[in-house]
Computed example of a mutant assay.
Amino acid sequence: MTSDNIAPDEQVLPVPRVLADEPVDLAISRSDRVFTGKIWDVRSETFDYNGENVLREFVDHPGAVAVLALDDDDRVLLIKQYRHPVRSREWEIPAGLLDVTGEDFLVGAQRELAEEADLEASEWSVLLDYATTPGGNNELIRIYLARGLRATETTFERTDEEADMELRWVGLDEVVDAVLAGRIQNPSLVIASLAAHASRQSAWTSLQPGDAPWPEWTRLHPAAS
């Protein structure tokens, strides 16, 4: 044995670090809005990276919330809605933009569930947060798990693509099977159903409180927080 009681042929492994993304705030020398759209904008930014000026253009997005509503029979509320960019009527979960100034994330999710499905819930948890397309936009989505469901006292009038939405209750296992078979591809539905399936297997111990902070969104939207 060596003086520190480690055999010469014994490998010393490093202490594992927690697997996590690393927030980086670089010096931005120029930031311009090059397109102003009805829902979101396109921004061009120049920043210093490893001593070089780098130019990138991306969709500047306010962020969004989505809701996986789960009833007492482990059925998920799905909404079929037309999405023009992909020319499809997709199965989705209720979701909406964080475009109301100063609105709390959870309040926004509760509003979307009511507006799109005429439902409210007594139990709210954060299922997970994710970035939709980090190479092309700064959109962040928080997905909530809503349980203890009941109908709202009033119903909402829906227009445009929401006017002919189809609602369906589908077992969580059936949704996961459809995801893995590639029959449904909406990202929030895919991610939420797989996360809920995994969390259920661990007795929902991965869930966070409904009012949990969202530091990554706050970091990217300091003026709105």
Rank of each mutant, 00 (worst) to 15 (best):
D71Y: 07
N186W: 07
A192F: 00
A66Y: 00
D71M: 06
D99Y: 04
E115D: 15
V24F: 03
V86C: 04
P213L: 03
E90N: 11
E120A: 12
Q201K: 15
V126A: 10
D60H: 09
I6W: 11
H84T: 13
E52D: 12
L127F: 07
D118T: 03
E116D: 04
W217T: 00
L167N: 09
S193M: 09
L68Y: 03
N53G: 00
S206R: 12
E57K: 11
V76G: 05
A203N: 15
H221K: 09
L119Q: 10
D118Q: 01
P62L: 04
V34Y: 04
Q208Y: 07
E116Y: 03
L55Y: 09
D177P: 04
L189W: 06
S206K: 07
W169H: 08
A66H: 07
L98F: 07
P209I: 04
D72Q: 12
I39T: 15
V126Y: 06
G108K: 01
P209E: 08
Q185G: 11
E116C: 05
G37Y: 06
G148Q: 08
Y144M: 00
V34N: 01
Q11K: 13
V65D: 01
N186L: 09
S225G: 15
Q81R: 15
V86L: 11
G148V: 10
I143C: 14
V67K: 08
V100S: 13
D4P: 06
S44P: 05
L140Q: 11
S202R: 15
V179S: 06
T205G: 08
E52V: 06
N186P: 03
T218Q: 15
P8I: 05
V24P: 01
I28G: 01
T152H: 08
D173L: 12
L97Q: 12
Q81N: 13
D104N: 14
V107S: 12
S44G: 02
A195H: 13
A198V: 13
W124K: 04
R87C: 01
A178K: 13
S122T: 14
V107F: 01
F35H: 12
A192T: 09
H61Q: 11
V15K: 13
E52S: 15
P8H: 05
T205H: 11
Q110G: 03
E45S: 15
S31K: 05
L207S: 07
A27N: 13
S31I: 06
T159C: 00
L167W: 04
V59I: 05
T159G: 00
S29Y: 00
A109W: 05
Y82P: 01
V59F: 08
E162L: 12
V54R: 14
E103R: 15
I28N: 02
D25G: 06
D211M: 05
N50Q: 13
N137C: 04
H197S: 14
H221A: 06
R33I: 10
A20V: 09
D160Y: 03
V179M: 06
G108E: 04
R147A: 11
D160C: 00
L140D: 00
E162V: 03
Q81S: 10
K80G: 02
D177W: 02
E52G: 00
D71K: 05
G108H: 06
